[in-house]
Design a protein around this nucleic acid. Structure first.
Length: 965
RNA sequence: GCCUGAGUGGCGGAAUUGGUAGACGCGCUGGAUUCAAAAUCCAGUUCACGCAAGUGAGUGCGGGUUCGAUUCCCGCCUCAGGUACCA
């Protein structure tokens, strides 16, 4: 190595991010820098991230986006003198670990543990200020003991609508014994009335069944995705285009008893609570629409020539004179009973078609389908006979599972009526309201007998009154929100702390018997009839004398519904968290996470929290005061097309080119393929060749004998058969931009980037990518600019390769640069605009380089302000400056407006709104002065050119606009 | 389908309350340095026409309000997230 090279290496070794970062990460760990106490004189601040599911693919570049943002905020708050709780943990139960176990035989507990270790390393290398002593894992029995306990409490409570809170079910039993349920106002599965005598006449089993209809955790028959070929229940995510993703087998809906949570009992409070929290209005709207409150009427229609009555729900009772037919959900109880002999065959055929369709497909389809039952109902007002149909657009889970169809005033009813030639009667004259949509509920009633001429709102009230008088229904508030399905026929989840006695009555295990630990097994295959793998462990199932255990497990949302409370007091064995801890930390001040959790997780945790509040166990009604949705770092997902119909019993894959050429989109399913096997991954022309196919088959052995066809020929069982002169296959894949996820096989890890550029650079680069809320595909182009910035910042402190800063007084220009930056950064952190913070630091650094400033008075506050973003380099420079303690606790600098004052301001001079010139005015000039001077500016004549000046608009400190014509 | 977002140079993005569109960074072009390259530094860079001065156009598309619209209103298009068992 020659001398010059050596010298150059030495020069470049000055800022060596990885050395500095490891040094300070070790220092923070050894000094418990981020450990936080539940007792402090400082005000509390709780910054929470949505904890990750520890996927086998490792932490991907999307995870840190939110974590970096929340870490910056937590560090900023710490520097402002708050006692900051900033914890991290793992949402460790879930389907992927179990799928992995089925493929490899590796126990989910083992793979989860391995994954967590990897995540731990990765998270630590990112320099987050987490208090790791508070880490929680939902799969830890010490943790899920309390998940199980909260479940048992839900079981032991009902929702009393008079008290507007959850009350013990034992109270309800007392009431039933005293007076039956006639005075009870409570959330229930089904309206029924009984008196004390009727209650006491019930058998033990009947009593239990009745109580089940009130409990907040209850068991009821529900529908699951059933795959006969695989003998298992599938998650929605495992079903693609109507067939199982694994193996491509048909999937149907199957009824099975399921545990549920009565989230609907809290619908109104979940709605009201939204007004009290600082969430984005779009997220609140999503939740409001999800809850879907509507006011309408529930009423009964008689069936012609039958005792049966059909209960319907409608938001438009006023349109009843236009109700020309009825539609039942295909799963409706009455379908079997009402179908006439003549229509039996057609109905059965339709039912089997519907069974093959998921709810999502049923709602998404533009085409309408349906079948006539042969039966007729009687419109209670017109007394005419109207046909009863079944159709998949009516869902059994919403309302009563039956509608009166008014084709004149409902889009879908109209499409349906037009397709099947059903009668349409206009009942609302909307001519007074041009531009109003159907959902505005505006217009005047026509063709409607006694309500003719009334406005819609009047008519609704009138019909509701009549319906009540006739005893055929009542006004009712309805919600789209459904109770939460809480059973999974899976191994890797919390076991239900439930045993059934000989009669099949469910009993909850008492707290002393919790946790009910997940039993060990080596066999994760589903049990008989799609039961959970736990059902195979007969010793465990029967381990309690005279009882059998529930073998379903809880879904992943169980553990994540309350984990933020556990962080407050993570090692407590006596309670889910001690009351002192809960009362000190109260609630989450800032919650950061992806908008993909907008409903599921954020609705469930609010529900659990409200229940705990009702029990007096938490002090606030809402768990998350402020919420920021970070966008998603996306990846490209690669798919290969597979024909839905097998060819000679084999799966048949097609080149995207063939699918396009022959327009076969209806006949193919998209099968995701790992991005590592795809050539030119991410580009438009990405494809797979024979080598890729071999890798794919090794990964997905069920496709060992599959056919791979492209325009050049076919490949099967290792043999390529060319169609014309060709030497190999070239199947173009189908690429989509989408979520980075292990299940999409498109994960990119941050490790390599961090190795190359360092953590501080990675952190700042992810922030620099754009606003925290927007989603964008991952791309490393541009990272060198951030790297260069950090080196330039570092070099401000160096002269002739020596660390040199002076105590000289700062100049006016230097102070202006500093305070402009501090103002921008402070204001931008407060509004979570971190990308613009990074550019403010860049601007300041560039200007200070030009000013050759190396003064402590400037660089010290700048270093403190940079610390939340790039904590390692800041800590290193802070220690070199001999700052006191760690920069982590240094007071965040406050900007001073007086340094920002300008003597003169440059105004753009616009003619008719278009900038034509510039002019400088004193900062103290009045509007009139500016107008006068502006009109006399040299060069203005050219623009006015014979036209008249109509108006001059002067916006102080902004611009001048001269209007001419 | 329904609900919620997003769309600005070659690329990521900025413009905080209706007031200079393109901050900052990448890339690219030219130059300096170097035997050469990397690195670094300097200058330029929305597009079209033009040697230039300049002129015109321009924030997904089509309209509207306004002295002035990326920003507000109406109607579309495309993409993303969710759609109740991925988490």
């Amino acid at each position: 190595m020659n001398l010059i090279l050596k010298l150059e290496l030495k020069l470049r070794m000055d800022y060596t991010p990885r050395d500095i970062e490891q040094k300070w990460q070790k220092y923070w760990e050894e000094n418990d820098t981020y450990k936080v106490s539940n007792q402090s004189d400082k005000p509390k601040y709780y910054v929470l991230d949505m904890f990750p599911y520890p996927s086998g693919a490792g932490l991907h570049v999307g995870h840190p986006l939110g974590y970096i943002a929340s870490d910056i905020f937590a560090r900023y708050k710490r520097q402002q003198g708050f006692n900051v709780l900033h914890p991290m943990g793992y949402d460790a139960f879930g389907l992927p670990a179990e799928e992995y176990a089925l493929q490899t035989g590796i126990h989910p507990a083992v793979s989860t543990d391995t994954n967590i270790k990897r995540y731990n390393e990765q998270l630590r290398s990112l320099g987050f200020s987490f208090d790791w002593s508070r880490e929680v894992r939902t799969c830890d029995p010490k943790y899920y003991k309390w998940t199980q306990w909260i479940f048992t409490e839900l079981f032991h409570h009902y929702y009393d609508q008079a008290a507007n809170k959850a009350l013990p079910i034992a109270d309800l039993v007392q009431t039933f014994e005293k007076e039956g349920n006639t005075n009870v106002k409570a959330a229930t599965t089904q309206e029924e009335t009984f008196d004390a005598a009727a209650w006491s006449a019930m058998s033990k089993l009947e009593k239990e069944e009745t109580l089940m209809r009130y409990r907040l955790a209850y068991r009821e028959v529900g529908y699951v995705n059933w795959c006969e070929a695989l003998g298992t229940v599938l998650a929605n995510d495992q079903v693609k285009d109507g067939i199982s993703e694994r193996g491509g087998h048909p999937v149907v809906q199957k009824a099975m008893p399921q545990w549920n949570l009565r989230t609907t009992a809290y619908a109104e409070r979940l709605l009201d609570g939204l007004d009290t929290i600082d969430w984005s209005s779009s997220l609140k709207t999503i939740q409001r629409n999800w809850i879907g409150r509507s006011e309408g009427a529930q009423m009964f229609f008689d069936v012609a020539d039958s005792e049966a009555k059909i209960e319907i729900y409608t938001t438009r009772p006023d349109t009843i004179f236009g109700a020309t037919y009825m539609v039942l959900a295909p799963e409706h109880d009455l379908v079997e009973k009402l179908t006439t002999e003549g229509q039996r065959g057609a109905i059965d055929k339709y039912l089997s078609y519907v069974k093959s369709r998921s709810e999502l497909e049923r709602m998404a389809d533009k085409q309408v389908t349906g079948e006539f039952t042969g039966a007729y109902a009687v419109n209670p007002f017109t007394k005419t006979k109207i046909p009863i149909w079944i159709a998949e657009y009516v869902l059994i889970s919403y309302g009563t599972g039956a509608i009166m169809a008014v084709p004149s005033d409902d889009e879908r009813d109209k499409t349906f009526a037009e397709k099947f030639g059903l009668e349409i009667i206009d009942v609302v004259d909307k001519s007074d309201y041009p531009g109003a949509t159907l959902s505005d509920k505006l217009g005047k009633m026509i063709n409607s007998d006694f309500i003719n001429g009334m406005e819609v709102s009047e008519a609704i009230a009138e019909i509701n009154k009549r319906v009540g008088q006739m005893g055929i229904g009542t006004a009712k508030v309805n919600y789209k929100l459904r109770d939460a399905g809480f059973s999974r026929q899976r191994y890797w989840g919390e076991p239900f702390p439930i045993v059934y006695d000989a009669d099949g009555t469910a009993e909850m295990l008492p707290l002393q018997e919790l946790p009910l630990e997940l039993p060990d097994t080596e066999d994760f295959k589903p049990g008989q009839g799609g039961q959970s793998p736990l059902s195979r462990l007969t010793d465990w199932v029967n381990s309690k004398q005279g009882y059998t255990r529930e073998t379903d497990t809880m879904p992943a949302v169980a553990g994540s519904s309350w984990y933020f409370l556990r962080y407050m007091d993570p090692h407590n064995d006596e309670a889910f968290a001690g009351q002192d801890a809960v009362n000190y930390w109260q609630d989450v001040d800032l919650y950061v996470g992806g908008s993909e959790h907008a409903v599921a997780h954020l609705m469930y945790s609010r529900f659990w929290h409200k229940f705990l509040y009702d029990k007096g166990l938490v002090p606030t009604q809402e768990p998350f005061k402020k919420l920021i949705n970070q966008g998603m770092i996306q990846g490209v997902i690669e798919f290969i097309y597979m024909k839905k119909e097998k060819t000679n019993g084999q799966a048949h894959f097609l080149c995207a080119g063939l699918v396009k050429r022959d327009n076969l989109y209806d006949q193919v399913a998209r099968i995701p393929i790992h991005i590592d096997y795809v050539i030119d991954y991410g580009s438009e022309k990405s494809f797979i060749n024979i080598k890729s196919i071999k890798q794919f088959i090794a990964w997905r052995p069920e496709y060992e004998n599959a056919i791979f066809e492209c325009s050049k020929g076919t490949f099967q069982n290792g043999i390529f058969t060319p169609k014309k002169d060709a030497t190999g296959t070239h199947l173009v894949t189908h690429s989509e931009v989408g979520k980075m996820s292990k299940s999409k096989y498109n994960v990119v890890n941050p490790d390599l980037v961090i190795d190359q550029y360092g953590t501080d650079c990675f952190r700042m680069y992810e922030m620099f990518l754009g606003p925290i809320e927007t989603s964008k595909p991952w791309d490393v182009q541009g990272i060198s600019g951030v790297s260069k910035f950090l080196r330039n910042f570092w070099n401000l402190f160096y002269q002739n390769e020596k660390f040199t800063i002076t105590d000289d007084e700062a100049t006016k220009d230097e102070l202006k640069v500093l305070h402009t930056c501090l103002k921008k950064v402070t204001e931008d952190i407060e509004r979570f605009s971190f990308n613009t913070c990074v550019s403010a630091f860049m601007v300041a650094t560039n200007e200070l380089r030009k000013l050759k400033c190396n003064k402590r008075a400037i660089l010290e506050p700048l270093t403190i302000a940079l610390a939340p973003f790039a904590p390692h380099i800041s800590e290193e420079l802070w220690s070199k400056m001999e700052g006191e303690g760690s920069v982590v606790m240094a007071q965040f600098p406050v900007f001073d407006e007086s340094h920002l004052a300008e003597d003169s301001i440059t105004y753009p001079i616009c003619i008719n709104g278009k900038k034509r010139m510039e002019a400088s005015f004193s900062a103290t000039a009045s509007k009139d002065d500016i107008e006068k001077i502006a009109l006399e500016l040299d060069g203005l004549e050219k623009w006015i050119d014979g036209k008249t000046v109509r108006k001059v608009i002067v916006v102080p400190k902004r611009m001048v606009n001269i209007v001419v014509s």
